[in-house]
Amino acid sequence: MAYRWGMAVDLDRCTGCEACVTACHAENNIPTVGAGQAARGRAMHWIRVERYYEGDFPDVRVKFRPVLCQHCDAAPCEAVCPTYASHQSEDGLNAQVYNRCIGTRYCGNACMYNVRFFNFFNPEWEKPLNLQLNPDVSIRSVGVMEKCTFCVQRIKAAKVLIKSENRDLKDGELQPACAQACPTTALVFGDLNDPESRVARLSHSPRGTKLLEDLGAEPKVTYLQKQAWYEPDAH
């Protein structure tokens, strides 16, 4: 059976700690661009935690919202790419083929979530920081777009593993780096085609919404809205 990878993000659990952000950097060989380039808008964070204030002091509230590639079914980034570097994989991943990318950056404009990041320069790791690089993840050269892959290298490895062990993938066995690190388990990853999977069940939660749903990109990431506290005794 084909997989359909998806994620549920529980905004009631997310604390904005950004463990996911660093985990993603560590797993996916995302370069650190340095202060000068960061000031010029070149920082790369495949996953970011958006923070929005509501109200004014002292009646102020905050919303945290992790935003990563939504792996949309109708991803606006895909069709605009003239070289098919961005396309939908069989597992429903929004795949980015670095080798085919010529750097029009059109996908980055078309993506309403702004989760695509561009290699403005060749990445550098000052020795010996390069020793940390994950050998399972290719390094992107200058002029190439990159983005969250749902840790496709882990997906591939897991497929090889279950094939060699002749078994099915267990729900929760496979996690991208962000979900694995997330202390509050706000990020849940899995196969949406498996109705029993945790992510499939959460995706049908009444709290579930899609980010910018009206724009019709049909994302595979579901956001579970923060709940308000109510007094159980009052009911």
Binding site: C17, E18, A19, V21, T22, A23, H25, A26, E27, P128, L129, N130, L131, Q132, L133, N134, P135, A177, Q180, A181, C182, P183, T185
Partner: peptide
């Protein structure tokens, strides 16, 4: 190459914070 929380550890319970993820850079 990477640090993950140890699921067998009763404190981290398999999770790790942003700083812990970056701890590997101390070595390199």
């Amino acid at each position: 190459k990477k640090l993950e929380g140890n699921p067998a550890d009763p404190i981290s319970q398999g999770k790790l914070c942003a700083r812990g993820q970056a701890a590997v850079q101390v070595t390199y």
